[in-house]
Every structure is written in C-alpha cells, then in structure tokens.
Amino acid sequence: MKNILISLSTIAVLAMSSSAMAAVHQNTGCGLGSIVIKDQSTVVMQVLAATTNGTSGNQTFGISTGTLNCQAPTKVAMNDQAQKFSADNMDSIAVDIAAGEGESLDTLLTLINVENKTAAAETLKNNFASVYTSSSVTSAQVVDNIIAVL
C-alpha cells in the first residue's frame, strides 16, 4: 500500500517537474560543436531521462562504438579510441589549448605520445590559430596541425 501511495505521488510530481534534462548526444561529425544539447521539446519528456537515467542515444557495449566516418590524421598513427576521443572532444580540446591547460588536452597529448605536456601546452597556446585554423576545421586536421606545431 505504501509503495502504491509513494508511487502515485511520485508520478504526479515527476509529471509536473519542470527542469530535468534529457541528454541528446548528437552525432556531431568530425568538427567543432560536440556539445550535448538539452532536449527542450517537452517538459515532461525531460523528466524521463532523470527518472530512468537513460539517454536517448543507443545503448551500446564496447569501445569503438558508432562509426564516425572521419578522416584519420596523416602525421600520426591513432587507434580507433584516440580518433574517437579527438573527434568527440574538439570543443574542450580547443578551450584547453586556448587556456594553456586542461584535462582534455592532457588526454589528447598522451594519446599521441607527447611527453613534455607542459611545454607542449604552452607552444600550442601561442599557436592557437595554427591549430584551429577555422570554425570548420576537422579533428584529423587539428591533430595534424598539433603535430606540425610541436
């Protein structure tokens, strides 16, 4: 009985809830813009994601999930995981390079086997425009540019 009462109240509340968010992992391709968008479609639809902690993307198992069809960088050999990381994190890597530090940048530098990360970060910061050459630059180009600059 208690469970039913709790449940009924929860339904009412969840349905009325106003600002839960559903995460939409957009397939952003190979460039900038890999930001997760809040699904604004309906207030109540958003409640679902919070209730069930699910995402509206496909549930997957395994690392190399979702083919990106992105070009691979030419100046360094990158495995699937590294390529996926660089493509999915273009924005945060850009922010980190401009700031001169950051977790995403550190991760990328490790993935392409750069040893002296602090020095690399400084060099890249001073050459930001040579790495992120335009707003439509691709992840393969960014990685190649990084190698060229360092």
Binding site: T10, I11, V44, L48
Partner: peptide
C-alpha cells in the same frame, strides 16, 4: 511524461 513516470516506477 505520465506514461514515463508510471512505467519507470
């Protein structure tokens, strides 16, 4: 939303 909440519970 209501269906969600109900089914989720």
């Amino acid at each position: 939303g209501f269906v969600f909440a109900y089914k989720g519970l």
